[in-house]
């Protein structure tokens, strides 16, 4: 049966630069009542300087750590379903980093259990994700409003990639991206969580069954809305430019939805 599923599809663990282990992430989201999450650790290029640096300091998945990562994700997905009825989707954030923001691109590959090289062109990567049965998401494709390395490459090529990428992040953490909102591209909102306190952020609310296939279908069909998830006693900044928005499952229009601040969503733990 379809139900409202609170989801976060961009989360980092200690396999890259996150601070929580995969079991800690599962327990955190499971105990807060989330219905679906994707763990997406960085998978950096092997030849670029930034990619090599990430490997030296352990901030990226490598061909050596990837098998362990996938095995742990599998076993934790089983546990999450049994313990919390929560779907855990294996994924990676393919991170192509360059000194130039316009040559940098981060692509979320959800539902992937095989190694994908980040050394290829973005279009090839997206097509490989599709061929492996995964779902691709353009991660924070525009200015993230944070003092950090930006990645505009996908946004620069959005006309070429719009039919290939399944969704574009309209919000990352507490910041909402108007450019994406008004672009007509398929959207998704996630936290890009690295630390425990980043749980307060924009999230996606899907209308689907609690299985990976149904979650993917809901994202592809854009049967989702966006919700700012505020954890109690957390003063994390929230962008003021975005109203609570919902995309109607049967319409292409976005509209304000007073009932989207809803009581049907799980209440954050005190």
């Amino acid at each position: 049966m379809k139900q409202l599923v609170l989801g976060d599809f961009h989360i980092h663990s200690t396999f890259s630069d996150g601070k929580l282990t995969i079991p800690e992430i599962v327990d955190l989201y499971g105990s807060l009542g989330f219905g679906a999450i994707a763990i997406t650790d960085h998978l950096c290029e092997s030849h670029s300087m930034i990619g090599k640096a990430a490997r030296y300091i352990g901030h990226t998945l490598t061909p050596a750590s990837f098998p362990l990562y996938i095995e742990i994700l599998k076993s934790e997905a089983d546990r999450a379903m049994k313990q919390y009825q929560m779907v855990v989707i294996p994924g990676v954030e393919i991170s192509k980093n360059s000194i130039s923001n316009h040559r940098s691109a981060h692509i979320l590959a959800l539902g992937i259990t095989q190694w994908i090289s980040a050394d290829k062109d973005a279009l090839e990567i997206v097509r490989e994700i599709k061929s492996l049965g995964g779902l691709s998401v353009a991660a924070h494709p525009v200015w993230t409003r944070k003092r950090e390395k930006q990645s505009y490459h996908l946004w620069d090529r959005r006309e070429e990639l719009k039919s290939e990428i399944d969704a574009w992040e309209v919000a990352s953490g507490p910041y909402f991206f108007d450019e994406v909102l008004h672009s007509g591209l398929p959207m998704i909102a996630s936290s890009d969580l690295h630390h425990r306190n980043q749980i307060t952020s924009w999230k996606s609310v899907l209308h689907c069954k609690r299985t990976q296939a149904d979650v993917f279908m809901a994202i592809r069909n854009q049967e989702l809305s966006f919700q700012f998830y505020q954890e109690v006693n957390n003063d994390y900044p929230r962008s003021t430019n975005a109203p609570h928005l919902v995309r109607s499952p049967n319409s292409d229009t976005l509209r304000n939805s007073p009932h989207n601040q809803g009581d049907e969503l799980p209440t954050p733990a005190p």
């Binding site: 663990s13 200690t14 396999f15 282990t21 995969i22 050596a64 750590s65 098998p67 362990l68 990562y69 095995e71 742990i72 599998k74 076993s75 934790e76």
Partner: peptide, 24 residues
């Protein structure tokens, strides 16, 4: 939880990787 010792057969230092997996 990390696939048992079969997962470790692809590494030379299966012992070191056991520690890595436990820490993860």
């Amino acid at each position: 939880r990390f696939g048992g010792i079969k997962t470790l057969a692809r590494y030379l230092a299966e012992d070191y990787m056991t520690g890595v997996a436990m820490l993860r």
